[in-house]
Amino acid sequence: MSTIAALTKPQILNLYRQYIRTAKDFTSYNFREYFLRKARRDFRLYKDQIKTEEDALAKFNMIREELAILKRQSIISEMYTFDKLVVEPIKTPK
């Protein structure tokens, strides 16, 4: 167990980066913004909420599972897209 339990800082940062990158792939403005907000909150609370190595691992795995869901769903969101919202700037192709 000790090898898994000792989560390293780079491991956590890597998960965080992947989560953010995946959240940004959502074509829906509201979902994208929500998961970005959630990522910031989850990782901000990460340190405070966690007391034991078990907690840390459980939380890590929970986020990792959610990341897998987001990966699938962001692809679906790319297949079914809609017009951009009135608050969203339209990117002009460079």
Partner: peptide, 12 residues
Amino acid sequence: QERSGFGTRPIY
């Protein structure tokens, strides 16, 4: 009137 450079779908 639409804001140019922005999308058209309403805020929900």
